[in-house]
Write a protein that binds this DNA or RNA. Structure first.
Lengths: 185, 185
DNA sequence: CGAAGAAACCTTAGCCCTGAAACACATACG
DNA sequence: CGTATGTGTTTCAGGGCTAAGGTTTCTTCG
């Protein structure tokens, strides 16, 4: 279902070639000219770019018999350092996912022997997830390849463009977060 | 707070405050200092920013009794112009989703009376989805509010920053697309 | 014509996510 | 010390997505 490889290098001098979002914006200008659709320039591109990134990511991780959701948990545990242990709540925060989602992710990883659950002795509500030796080996193997895969995806941007894009995305994340309604009312 | 390499983003006006991804990169530098994690500067921020965007988007659309997946189909039909009709294949391409996914989206929208399926008379394999009057009214209502919501999310960025971000995201999408392996690798 | 192959869509099986409610445990307070 | 309330995790119900395979319908060509 991937698009056919259309002609490349149509533009020069860094000119921006028309992309799918530009066409979408043109469509709206024709159909509903009274609307200001400029937010789509950023956010529709964010959406589409993420979908493409996610497709690539999923198939790369999948080759190692992992799902992105599980990989996300394994990397959070790995970068926490020895003894590679976090509570379900910490994992939920770090992955921007609900606590229900974390339970399911952990279920699957435990079934595969990559992590173990351990109850806290002091506060028996708390459940830690800890990397097993197999989980540690797996994440160290897959993460290095993951970085290589990401490097390839960024090949079309210069280092300066990457820095700029990183800065702007960070600012956008903060803007989205700060303009969220805190609660109902 | 080990202040080893942390001084990088201190100090100037418009300085970038440390965000979650910066912490993640510091973690990796401590745990696996031999890896070059610079791709995360861009792509982990892309991932997290999208997740936050998607959460906001979902709750806004949900207030109208719609799912993002369905809204996506409705807008594709709306901006195609009268008679607001596209094939399942066209909808799959436009939404970057599999044809199976489109079938499910269409099922739900048809059940809600927002679209109708129509078989092509000439080629009876083809199934069009067409907006009903209710669907047209719904999408015109929700889309305008959607744009306002997106405008709020972008409030923290200047117009110049938005233009720059749009350009860089477009370039990134193309880079990801072009570096994809055409087939099994 | 009629069978092979291609194309468009649908079905199935499997995994993933969320919000709300349930459950287990901790803590505060009268 | 025992109920009320809060916190951390799990369960449940309801969707959503994909890959792979199935069905129906064209198209091609002997």
């Amino acid at each position: 279902m991937t698009g056919k490889n259309a002609g490349k290098n149509a533009g020069k001098n860094g000119a921006v070639r028309k992309d799918a979002v530009a066409s979408i914006i043109e469509d709206w200008a024709r159909e509903r000219p009274e609307l200001d659709t400029s937010p789509l320039e950023v956010l529709a591109r964010l959406h589409r770019t993420f979908l493409r990134y996610n497709t690539r990511l999923t198939s790369a991780i999948d080759r190692h018999g992992l799902a992105v959701a599980g990989f996300d948990v394994l990397t959070a545990l790995r970068r926490a350092g020895a003894p590679y242990r976090l509570t379900a709540g910490q994992l939920a925060d770090s992955g921007l996912v609900s606590s229900a989602g974390v339970t399911l992710r952990i279920d699957r990883l435990e079934k595969d022997g990559l992590i173990v659950r351990e109850r806290d002795a002091d506060d028996r509500r708390v459940v830690y997830s800890r990397l097993t030796d197999a989980g540690l080996a797996k994440v160290d193997e897959v993460f290095a390849e993951h970085l290589d895969n990401e490097r390839r995806m960024l090949a079309g941007l210069s280092p300066a463009e990457c820095r700029q894009l990183a800065r702007l995305l960070s600012k956008l994340e903060r803007s989205i977060e700060e303009t969220a309604v805190p609660d109902e009312g």
